[in-house]
Design a binder for these strands. Sequence first.
DNA 1: CCTGAAACCTGTCTGC
DNA 2: TGCAGACAGGTTTCAG
Length: 272
Amino acid sequence: MPELPEVETITRSLREGSPEVPSILGEQVSTVNLLWQRTLAAPSPAEFAARLPGQRIESIRRRAKFLVLRLSADHLLIHLRMSGDLRVEPETSAPLQPHDRLALDFASGRSLRFNDTRKFGRAWLTSSPADVLAGLGPEPLDPAFTPAVLAERLAGRRRLLKPLLLDQAFIAGLGNIYTDEALHTAGLHPLRLASSLTPAEIERLWAGIRAVLQEGIRRNGASIDWVYRGGDFQNHFRVYQRTGQPCPACGAPIQRILSGQRSTHFCPVCQR
DNA sequence: CCTGAAACCTGTCTGC
DNA sequence: TGCAGACAGGTTTCAG
């Protein structure tokens, strides 16, 4: 499921809470229950279970597609990968759901559950989160990410736009949905060579990336299939998973190709 | 430096 | 109905 807008939506819901599920800021971990060993990237399960209890959640933010929970002494980082999801149970006695991989019980009696059907998701408990986050590219919605920054990063890159935009070291947070949507918004073919863009095209790409991410956040992300978060951006896709359907801009049928083993959707008329 | 394939996983859908 | 194959929002590793 989760790309930048989905992770941002989850981050906000955990931090700000809702009438049904209050914020988990300030919660103190009492017990941990690791149900799938490999979900924990570091440290060892024994050290994890020894270090985490007693720590409070001091802040919650997002970096790229990572959730970053600052604790009393450590940071807990969570990456949801393809099918991960987080939910808060009102009682620690709430039964585990199918595919729950990690449960953090709080002293208040609530419990945070990391559910992940495909087991690709990962959690890190670390005193140096920068090490885990090292190598990530710029945050596309940060004010520091300007068209000039994008132009500088594109210069000389002999790569195709689609795989380059998916590369988290080039720009952080885009995934398959928002890359296709951004390229359509910018009117750029996904297989264009990155170094071939004109300044006007770079400006359009920059604006397209920001626009689709902002729309995704405004719509609380996209919810597809059995991974559901309550967002509705999936009802506003221009090209993603719309193969054969009319382009919203010109009516031409949307095409699907493969680029680096990833489905890639585009309008052959709007994106030359 | 760059691309493609495979691996890590489970579930759903399509076509024969 | 059964079953093989394709495909799914991500990332890492390795071969060429």
